[in-house]
Design a protein around this nucleic acid. Structure first.
Lengths: 142, 142
DNA sequence: GTACACTCCGTACCATACTACAGAGTCAAG
DNA sequence: CTTGACTCTGTAGTATGGTACGGAGTGTAC
């Protein structure tokens, strides 16, 4: 068995059947071959593709961005150079996200620490911790 | 000058005026004091609060989750212990996101590398790289 | 050979997170 | 003391990313 029905793909990828069709319409997964009856026949790889989409969404990527990520491959339409450039741009995006997440994590760790020490905690500690190095702007003049 | 109009807050936080009001309605920022005219008077901290909301959204947090993050503070309603527990849970969420992002970054770095070496590149390299350790499920049986 | 779960397509509906008015009042620079 | 930018409330509309039918055909296990 090399192929799966839409229902199986959906169950394994932990999404609804409608979502699979939706992703097809949106160009996130390829239109699969069909049986004579019209039933879609998916290759097993579709499951990991949909899982990837799910994860990327949880990381704040839009479907448009995910489409771009998934299209980072060399084919008749894209040269090596082109793909490399696009991949490098995505790496920068990801590094920004990583840094913001790290800051958020540190803020929470500090919060937990000060909570354990029963030290007085400021009004909104997570916010204050995030402020150091938020986006290079330190001060706001009215 | 310790306070700002809604327009200034919006400009500094790089969102629309309507968005500031929307966040107020949604309980993400406090209802500010008003002038006699009814004009809102925001403390400067509101700007970083809104910036935080923006960043957290870009990291895939929903407004509901962001509300929870911002409420991680000790006050009359929340004990130290309670806050610590919630913060620890959020740290785990964040670590999952960090790991997924790291995997995605590595996949892209490998893609760039293989592109530079002019080596043959697989159909969808980012996907393949992400598959090692996606969510503990390695194999799909049909 | 018939239940019953599954699939098809199309359309409509939903939640989230804004965004854009309308109509009226306010502020401040010249 | 006016003019133009700003603010107010309320309501309506939009984009994204699904989710849920309805009505009809298909697959398969007993």
């Amino acid at each position: 068995m090399e192929s799966m029905t839409i229902g199986k793909v959906a169950r394994f990828a932990e999404v609804g059947v409608e979502t699979v069709r939706f992703y097809e319409r949106e160009g996130l997964i390829a239109e699969p071959p069909r049986r004579e009856s019209g039933y879609r026949q998916y290759p097993v790889e579709t499951v990991s593709r949909i899982r990837f989409i799910k994860h990327a969404k949880e990381l704040g990527f839009t479907l448009k961005e995910i489409r771009e990520l998934l299209s980072l491959q060399i084919d008749s339409e894209a040269t090596c150079d082109d793909v490399r450039k696009r991949a490098e741009a995505k790496i920068l995006d990801i590094e920004e996200k990583l840094q913001a997440l790290e800051r958020m994590k540190m803020a929470l760790i500090n919060l937990v620490k000060s909570c354990r020490g029963r030290a007085p905690v400021s009004e909104c500690p997570i916010l204050e911790a995030m402020e150091d190095g938020n986006d290079g702007i330190r001060r706001v003049d009215i």
